[in-house]
C-alpha cells in the first residue's frame, strides 16, 4: 500500500466541534471524487466523526489527515487521526462496547473499527494516540 499524489489530500487541525464538521465534509468530498458509493461514504464519514470527536473529547486537539492510497489493483482512502493526549490505558478494553471514560455510549471507537475495512490503533500513555483507517473502493 502506498500513498498517492499530494493533490488529493486533507490535513486539518481539529480543535472543536466545528472542525469535526469540516473534516467530515472534506472527507466526504474526497470519497465522492474517488467514486465511493453513498453507502461507503456514510459509513466512513460516521467513523471519521467518531474518531475526530474522540480527539476533541480526550485530547483537546489533534490532527486529521486523509489521502488516496493504491495497493496493486485497487485504490482506497486512508485517514489518520493523531493527538498528543493522555493515550489509552488498555486499547483492547477501549474497543469493547460500553467502555467509556467520557460519559458517552462507549461504542465509538469499536464502532469505528467495524465501520471501515482496515483499522489500526497505536497509543502510548502520556504521549498520545494515532488511529489509521482505510477503506478500499470495491
Amino acid at each position: 500500500m502506498k500513498k498517492v499524489s499530494d493533490s488529493l489530500k486533507i490535513n486539518v487541525e481539529v480543535m472543536d466541534q466545528e472542525d469535526v464538521i469540516v473534516v467530515r465534509q472534506e472527507i466526504r468530498q474526497l470519497m465522492r471524487g474517488l467514486g465511493f458509493s453513498l453507502m461507503d461514504q456514510t459509513r466512513v464519514v460516521t467513523a471519521v466523526s467518531e474518531l475526530a470527536r474522540n480527539i476533541i473529547v480526550h485530547a483537546g486537539q489533534g490532527r486529521v489527515e486523509a489521502y488516496q492510497v493504491i495497493d496493486q489493483h485497487r485504490i482506497g482512502i486512508s485517514c489518520i487521526f493523531t493527538d498528543e493526549g493522555p493515550g489509552i490505558h488498555d486499547v483492547q478494553k477501549a474497543l469493547e462496547p460500553g467502555f467509556s471514560t467520557a460519559n458517552s455510549m462507549g461504542i465509538g471507537l469499536g464502532g469505528a473499527k467495524n465501520l471501515c475495512n482496515e483499522f489500526d490503533i497505536e497509543s502510548a500513555l502520556g504521549k498520545g494516540t494515532k488511529v489509521t483507517i482505510t477503506e478500499w473502493l470495491k
Binding site: 453513498l38 453507502m39 456514510t42 461504542i107 465509538g108 464502532g111 465501520l115
Partner: peptide
C-alpha cells in the same frame, strides 16, 4: 434511511 440503518448497526448503536 438504508445507509444510516447499516451504519448504526455496525457502529453498535
Amino acid at each position: 434511511r438504508a445507509k444510516i440503518s447499516q451504519t448504526l448497526v455496525q457502529l453498535g448503536v
